[in-house]
Amino acid sequence: MRLRIRFSKIGKIRFTSHRDTARIWERGLRRAGLPVAYSEGFTPRPRISFGLALPTGYESEAEYLDVELDGEAAGLSGLGIDGEAAGLSGLAGALTEATPAGITVQAAAGIDRAEPSLQETVTSCTWRIDVDGVDEGTAAASAARALDAGEILVTRERKGRTVTDDVRPQIVSLDATSTATGGVRLIAELGTKPRALRPAELLAGLCPSPRELRVRRLRQWISTGSKQREPLEAFTLPNPSPAADAARTTNAKDHRDDRPSGRQRGEPAPRGRFATATATTTAQVARQTGRARANLVGS
């Protein structure tokens, strides 16, 4: 069966690469005792697939991975997860516990095999980009200009070649606002097809081009027609509105880095059957799981 996991990556750990994060998850899943399926062949690899790579140095409130688990028919209950809310929340808690500080598992649910891969299915991402070198008025004006423009040409290196692309079609929305500390913040929804537009490339396309300070992926979206949904909703939804985000400091130490944990220094993390559910209350979980499941095609 296939398990989809949603997690955030915030604080110092943002400096790990996509590859590093993949390795962190391979170990984390084993520590949590999940029966990850392995590929056949000379060098068996755990069957885990990740969505769109998050550039090194960027934070995220919406990362995903899909994991193939051994035990075709068993489903979640075969894993000892008691079907619904408490079980899934327990699993999320155990996975948070099994991964390093800075990674918090926000949701987990079984998904249908037929569900297309994250890479294929995600159509856009919402980014929060704190910038420097422009004031809010200038940023708002250049954002408006960008949205009005017929095309925005950006020159970038790709596979060793310099190519110039029109990135305008991939800018779904773009707003400039300010942070509580007086900095300038852009909220942008950027398309991923045919190729994901990165925040740094967006900034290069703006005029004047602001300097990137701190970037966080807020959402990944799947658009079908006029409907937009997330690959999996978080159990506890952080408020995505710019106003609420502005209340948080932007460049000071992010205290979520130091995720509270029951672990003492050096003490091994508990392993096994997700016995360490700590994340959410049962009531919350019931509500959230209901919501999460609405997005899924059963398990």
């Binding site: 110092k12 400096f15 790990t16 090194t56 140095g57 390093p100 500080a101 220094r265 050096g266 993390a269």
Partner: peptide, 20 residues
């Protein structure tokens, strides 16, 4: 750190790290 290669080398945070 955003300006250097492999910045994860400098962040600590390994499992097993102690915070004396």
């Amino acid at each position: 750190l955003p300006r250097v290669a492999k910045p994860a080398r400098y962040i600590g945070g390994e499992d097993g790290m102690q915070s004396p």
